[in-house]
Design a protein around this nucleic acid. Structure first.
Lengths: 125, 125
DNA sequence: CGGCATCCTTGCCGATACTG
DNA sequence: CAGTATCGGCAAGGATGCCG
């Protein structure tokens, strides 16, 4: 326990694991990413549909975030060349794997709220 | 499946789950939080020890982040009034529960890297 | 050693307007 | 409908210096 295990801390295989964690968080962080993903958990959506699901988001942000998610192969963008223009967004298979992660985060988030607010309050609410 | 389940999207119990996820992410996000926590996975540390584990972090940031983590009851701060001054930081029981979450994020992060870089490259590295 | 105070840069993100 | 273009505020956070 008092051994020099901390030598591995940010060099060696530990740093590789660190980067993996940071990568994962980086994809989920920010005000909108998770909300967009959750919105798409419910199925394929058009730009405006997602927009309506996220009160307060601007077209600019939604556009940017979707582009990010597409770059990360989490979201598939499909263009129908009809009029009016129609573009569909859906989670890729890989995007679907986020369900587990988000579920885990959700559980911890609840537990955390209990810890912070006090167990008693948690039942009260 | 095509039912109007999206009605619940950001109103109702779904929004509660959303907030839980956001809470969890908020605690882990940023450049340093996870690194500090991981550093403390290896045991109780002093301010300078953590600082040495995280090349590039400034005293100001470390101080702020530790305060945040303490506020969230993830880290316990203990002051020995000796000379030179000595302050110990350790994860609380609640802080330890992050192991599962971080482990999950790490796994997904690796899988994500394979997805992005291509499975072939993953073995090559 | 373990910080806090100050200054300053960066870039996130919102508001608004415009296009095909 | 599905975006892009431009402007700009504001807060996170890096650099530096000082203190008990």
């Amino acid at each position: 326990m008092e051994t020099k295990t901390h030598k591995c801390l940010l060099t060696g295989e530990c740093s590789s694991a660190m980067r993996a964690v940071q990568d994962a968080i980086h994809i989920l962080e920010g005000r909108w990413k998770v909300q967009i993903i959750v919105s798409l958990f419910f199925g394929t959506k058009r730009f405006k549909e997602i927009s309506r699901d996220l009160p307060g988001i601007t077209d600019k942000m939604l556009s940017k975030e979707l582009k990010d998610l597409e770059t990360n192969k989490l979201v598939k963008r499909t263009v129908q060349d009809s009029f009016p223009p129609r573009v569909d967004y859906a989670l890729t298979e890989h995007g679907q794997t986020l369900r587990t992660v988000i579920s885990e985060l959700s559980h911890w988030g609840y537990a955390h709220r209990e810890e912070i607010m006090g167990k008693k309050m948690a039942e009260a609410v």
